[in-house]
């Protein structure tokens, strides 16, 4: 140890002069959580987040999803749970800021409403993606399966009425 101490005087130090020298994170580092362009606003991430850092709020005809980096524990559960690759943990770790707005990451989606009861069905993007993903699936009646202006309860009531009308006509 004595020899090493003496020789270290002449060697380059081990420390990096961060922030004057860069110190990048490796690939796969779990850094700042951000919504991507693929987010549909389904809210699955908010349901599984252990720290309850992601909130889903419906305001008027927009749905706002917000992730609070002060609460986020950077575990990556949202990334693993999201079916659409809509949220990801980037490799950014320099999040210190004086501006409170940068502590949150928000994304807004347009909502579609039920013509029957006026309640929220889901976001337009979510509906489009669902329709996109089932368009090649073999269904008997594609038109009936993709009614996009009724929520599930109103849809059930609508089909139940159709079926009962068909049965009463038939009899």
């Amino acid at each position: 140890m004595e020899i090493e101490a003496f020789l270290s005087l002449f060697k380059k130090p081990f420390t990096v002069k961060y922030p004057f020298e860069p110190s990048p994170a490796p690939e796969g580092f779990r850094g700042r959580t951000e919504f991507t362009d693929d987010c549909v606003g389904c809210g699955a991430c908010a349901a599984v987040c252990p720290a309850e850092a992601i909130t889903v709020r419906d305001e008027g005809d927009t749905r706002v999803l917000k992730v609070d980096h002060g609460l986020c524990i950077f575990c990556g559960t949202c990334q693993d749970t999201c079916p659409w690759e809509g949220i990801e943990l980037t490799e950014k770790f320099e999040m210190a800021t004086l501006d409170k707005e940068t502590v949150y990451d928000e994304v807004e989606h347009e909502l579609i409403f039920c013509e029957g009861c006026g309640g929220v069905i889901t976001t337009r993007k979510h509906m489009e993606k669902i329709q996109e993903s089932i368009k090649d699936v073999g269904l008997i009646d594609k038109d009936r399966a993709t009614i996009e202006n009724l929520c599930t309860s109103c849809k059930r009531r609508h089909f139940a009425k159709e079926i009962s009308e068909a049965m009463s006509l038939g009899s």
């Binding site: 090493e4 081990f14 796969g28 580092f29 779990r30 575990c75």
Partner: peptide
């Protein structure tokens, strides 16, 4: 104190490997 600095320098190699494999130096998820 010198031994403290040397030992923690070598600990950095282990932490770098953990960061590359799991994505973080300490809470591995």
């Amino acid at each position: 104190e010198t031994l403290f600095m040397y030992i923690w320098k070598d600990r950095e190699y282990v932490l770098d490997q953990l960061e590359i494999i799991t994505g973080n130096r300490n809470h591995y998820a």
